[in-house]
Amino acid sequence: MVQMTYRDALKQALRDAMTEDDSVVVIGEEVGRYGGAYGVTKGLYEEFGAARMIDTPISEPAIIGAAVGAAMSGLRPVAELMYVDFIGMTMDQLGNQAAKIRYMFGGQIGVPMVLRTQGGTGRSAGAQHSQSLEAYVLHTPGLRLVMPATVSDAYHLLRQSLRQPDPVVFIEHKALYTLKEEVDLSAPPPAWGKAAVRRTGDDLVIVTYSRQVHHALKAAEELSKQGLEATVIDLRCLNPLDFDTVRQHVERVGRVMVVSEGVMTAGVGAELSARIHEECFDFLAEPVIRLCGEDIPISVSVDLEANSVPTSQAVQQVAARLLAERSAA
């Protein structure tokens, strides 16, 4: 076990993958000499050189497209998109090319690439640098989607992503880079796509992922002081989705809250809520409650930004109310 930041765990995963497999290359803006806009790749240029840490001009569609071609040609590229907010620019290469090549071409070839990017609020970075756009990816068949919340998952899931036969979009959270936790680098990796149950309780299930896992856990600790015990499920992969774990706990507890930083409408929360209603209807004591980002852009104002997405207080309050209404009923 070592103490490590989320940022360093990602770097270690890249380093180990590159050491193990010569075909792994990193390609993106400022990934080499600069060391990454958030410092994730710092030092790797010195270790692996310019041929494997490939700095690019500011040309997002071509970066992702080049990664697609490289992946079809024997390399295992990790393309970095500096902010998930730029994904729209690359959506053709990602959605029409990377995601569909295996299928359109009748299974002749896959696109084993990883698109690493980061999203979320927390830095007053404004409307075009603070979004949570995972729903765009989840809505595209053919793309895998990973969103690690912990340092251990940052390491192990990035390693796992680099072993997948299909394109993986790996979305980090910009507010987690300095998170420091214990990690066992030599532990066997978690089964691909398996959710993690971070806490178990009998009163409520909170289904979430990425930074909101931490908000949910903090809220659960507070609720515990009031005698209310929550189960917190960290999905960590949204595609593949481990619905079996969700089902198992929903059926056991009967009350569910889905928490996501992405906007409410047609977001990941909507998909989860729909699926829980469809598949676990008979076990639900109450409708699923979604606590998600507001259906608005993110402001640069510190106050407006902070209140545009779920906070741990909001998770706690809504959960407490959900359970209070329940006992009153």
Binding site: F86, M89, G126, A127, Q128, H129, V300, L304
Partner: peptide
């Protein structure tokens, strides 16, 4: 307070907007 440095604009002066997307 919604836009900030990278999204400042003023239609009165014909400023159709600063941009955080290169």
């Amino acid at each position: 307070g919604k836009g900030g440095s990278m999204h400042i604009a003023d239609m009165g002066l014909g400023h159709l907007g600063a941009n955080a997307i290169v």
